[in-house]
Design a protein around this nucleic acid. Structure first.
Lengths: 265, 265
DNA sequence: GGACTAGGTTCCATTATTTGAAACTTTAGT
DNA sequence: ACTAAAGTTTCAAATAATGGAACCTAGTCC
């Protein structure tokens, strides 16, 4: 519903993946007509595309209801992607430790096209909520992790990421312009830490630290979230050293995990 | 000019997904030349396909090393697929309970083209091993969950699934022919429960129950795994009532979760 | 230093694949 | 039985994919 100029249709494959996103992103199984209504593609084209995707196991077509839903092949790919391309497996022990330490919700996130992609999570209460946390996306401009990562992006990438932000005013505290965000990012860069001051949800605040490679590249970010009636921002700020330390240890572990190829300059 | 027996075939999209599988399935980032060597596609074609996949965020191309790895967009899709098309989110509380009850490894699995796809897992010791369990695939003919699911498949689907089995003799106990498997499946169907009698790994046994919809369709299976030096098969068998009960409750919860469409006949 | 080599990228005429309006079939509603 | 809507197939035209070969580029060897 926000910015339309999404992925430029990379030929047939692009279209197919768009359809996949469409169907997978929808909250429940979609009938053909529904998909058709939501897609710019003509009937016949869409039809064959869906057929192909089902054939490939990326979508599942329920014979009973004739509705499409994400296929199990995605779960398989999912595993591979998460296990190898995300910080989550590496960061897990550190998150566990931090979680035991401070009893608050913890997020581990990475940046994907200017958006925040949560790749792991620890809940205050529950031992662990598995996939339920991993894979979710959120806005970059009004979350702690988002701002922490954007702040430390190289100039050109940051310039590319800012126009992708929706700048929707979720609350009265939300930053709603690229200029204001740039200013905030500069502060965050200087401070080494980011805060979410009820910018996304009223009553919800967080402190976030970027995870930077030895070369200074942004690898991800982690955050501790709480609510204003449990803790104050000042209170959260006292966690800064622990967050920085944890972020550093994750970065170190991630670098060590690098394959014996060329490491960074 | 495609009379050579390509498995996928489905036009450009099929090829692209094959490449995706190839790269994601490989244990570590792949350089272009590596992918090329492992692919039947000509250089230029592969090159453009990879470009497209990177463009679409399904793969990531590390600028430093020029190596391809799974992209974060997959993680996003992953989440959706897992959250909506698998039993895992629904079954979680029941698995937790069962896990607390019996202190053994528990698996939740679904069937994907005759193969077992594990969608959730509880470890005996460790709190939870996250993705490390979900997304993995295993053989259908020599695992408890696999046999439990195959046993309750409708005749035509079972007939389609059996030829997909590898029937590799992992151990001396492995069932190595379709006929023998059919006989075992009939027994399992009658007993309502399946055992893995060291058929996959020596010393590893398990008891597995199918999760059947009210209409009798196979939705998945769950299993409790242990080793012969900790428990005997007879010992495991005493867990049967609890497994059946848990499976029934999961099935019920899953049915209740069905969207207000047409429910099963 | 120069020339060799392997990995990576681009060109472009050819060709297969995709396209989509429309016709057709099936399913659901009255 | 009739009608409307959803789903499926057809086929000529248009488009996008193809892949052999040329072309870079960076590293290596003599």
């Amino acid at each position: 519903m926000n910015d339309m100029g999404t992925r430029s249709g990379d030929g047939t494959v692009g279209k197919a993946l768009d359809v996949l996103d469409q169907v997978a992103g929808h909250g429940r199984p979609m009938r053909f007509a529904e998909v058709l209504a939501a897609s710019p593609l003509p009937k016949a084209t869409l039809y064959r595309l869906l057929q192909t995707l089902v054939n490939q196991g990326m979508l599942r077509l329920d014979a009973e209801t004739g509705a499409y839903s994400p296929g199990l092949r995605l779960v398989r790919l999912a595993h591979m992607a998460w296990a190898r391309s995300s910080l989550a497996p590496i960061a897990r022990p550190f998150l566990d430790e931090l979680s035991k330490d401070v009893c608050e919700t913890i997020h581990l996130a990475q940046l994907d096209r200017g958006q925040v992609l949560y790749v792991d999570k620890r809940n205050a209460r529950q031992p662990i909520e598995m996939f339920s946390g991993a894979g979710k996306v959120g806005p970059g401009y009004c979350t702690g992790v988002g701002k922490a990562m954007l702040a430390h992006l190289p100039d050109d990438e940051r310039a590319a990421a800012l126009p992708l932000q929706a700048f929707h005013a979720h609350t009265g505290h939300t930053i709603t312009s690229a200029e204001a965000l740039e200013a905030e990012l500069a502060e965050i860069r200087a401070a080494g830490i980011a805060f979410d001051r009820e910018e996304h949800e009223p009553g919800i605040i967080c402190i976030a630290a970027p995870i930077l490679s030895p070369g200074g590249r942004v690898m991800g970010a982690l955050s501790i979230t709480t609510s204003t009636d449990r803790r104050s921002l000042e209170d959260l700020a006292t966690l800064k050293p622990r967050m920085i330390a944890t972020a550093a240890r994750i970065a170190e572990a991630a670098s060590a995990w690098q394959f014996p190829d060329r490491t960074e300059t």
